[in-house]
Simulated scan of single mutants.
Amino acid sequence: SSISFLIPQILSQKMTMRNNSPVTEFMLSGLTDWPEIQLPLFFLFLGVYVVTVVGNLGMIILIGLSSNLHTPMYYFLSSLSFIDLCHSTIITPKMLVKFVSEYNVISYPECITQLYFFLIFAIAECHMLAVMAYDRYVAICNPLLYNVTMSHQVCSWLVGGVYLLGFIGATAHTSCILRVLLCKNHISHYFCDLLSLLKLSCSSTYVNEVVILCFSAFNILIPSITIICSYICIIASILRIRSPEGRSKAFSTCSSHMSAVALFYGSAAFIYLQPSSENSTDQEKVSSVFYTIFVPMLNPLIYSLRNKDVKVAMRKILERRRLI
């Protein structure tokens, strides 16, 4: 907690020292300029955010309280829920302000801080999904070695590595953006996105674009390759299972994860793995809505509604409360 408290202060000091931009605050354009749909969209996204908070927080509490869910798979799922909760909280509240006010202004330090933490959790989610795929690979393809391979220490190191990669990527991108001269103050987006900030530059952004391409390739392609290779082995192993029930259970567990992967990586790759000049603002906004707002809401629903262990644990918790 002390580290998280110091990070905004450190960023603020760096911005004071390095920022030569004449801009001190930005105006966020929001999701749309159509006044007739502002209020309906406010209630829609407010509802989505409430479901996101309740779903992810509920998943974390449920896994913590249910002893039968204290396994590596649910340890990673709990971490994913925490990432989704933070990811959504960084973006959605500020976006909701635009729907009920004429202007949505964000200061330079607030914008950079929002960008920094958004990048941490976006990158962390990329690698957490890859870790979860590896966990399923070990569980299905090497079940006898599962407890040894996915020990408590290994799981802790994997989760720690996920957050470390998030911090490294976010620090690299934020350091590069702090060296760019920003001379416009209107962000054509509903949050301080990396590509949207670069469009405000009146200096060269070549280094930034190279850094974005390199880190995006690493943070999207490497986990994607890990996931694809894991699931090729998983599917081959499942097809060798003779029992229809065993095969159905294995497919059910993997299909939930694959649904989450397809939603997140599809929308993120669409934005960050093509030149920024080929992206229209509307395309960026639509794709961003999927992985910043809808994916964090859908993940706990996907894993809870299609998971028998979670349903059983939830039923036990509810029955325990009734007895009390």
Rank of each mutant, 00 (worst) to 15 (best):
F76W: 09
L80T: 08
P22K: 05
E102P: 02
C86A: 11
V100N: 04
S66T: 04
T92C: 10
I112W: 00
Y103E: 14
V131N: 10
L62T: 00
S29H: 14
V51W: 07
V51S: 10
I140D: 01
V23D: 03
L57P: 03
E110W: 15
V50G: 06
L69R: 01
A139Y: 11
A130G: 06
E36K: 13
L115V: 09
T89N: 15
H127V: 04
V50Q: 04
Y116I: 01
L39T: 08
V131P: 01
T52M: 05
T16D: 12
Y137Q: 06
N68K: 11
C141S: 02
Y49L: 09
F43Y: 13
L80D: 07
I91R: 15
F82C: 00
Y116S: 02
S79C: 12
F45A: 01
F26L: 06
M128N: 04
L77E: 07
S101V: 07
S21I: 04
T16E: 14
M128W: 08
M73C: 04
F82T: 03
S67Y: 08
P143W: 00
M132Q: 11
F99K: 06
T24Q: 15
G64A: 11
L85M: 11
A139R: 13
I63M: 06
M59L: 15
Y116D: 05
K14S: 11
L77V: 04
C126V: 03
V131M: 14
Y134N: 01
S107I: 08
N56L: 15
V105D: 07
Q38M: 10
Y134E: 12
H87P: 01
I90H: 12
M132H: 11
D33E: 09
E36N: 03
V48G: 03
L31Q: 07
V138W: 07
S12L: 03
K94D: 12
L119F: 06
P143L: 13
S88G: 14
T24M: 13
S67V: 01
Y103T: 14
L28K: 00
M95R: 00
L57E: 13
Q114R: 01
D33W: 03
L69H: 08
S81L: 07
L28A: 05
W34P: 02
L77C: 10
V48C: 14
D33F: 07
V138M: 10
Y116Q: 06
T71V: 08
N19D: 15
S79K: 01
I106E: 11
Y108N: 13
Q13A: 12
E102M: 10
P35W: 12
Y137E: 09
L77D: 09
L85Y: 03
N19P: 06
P109M: 02
F45R: 05
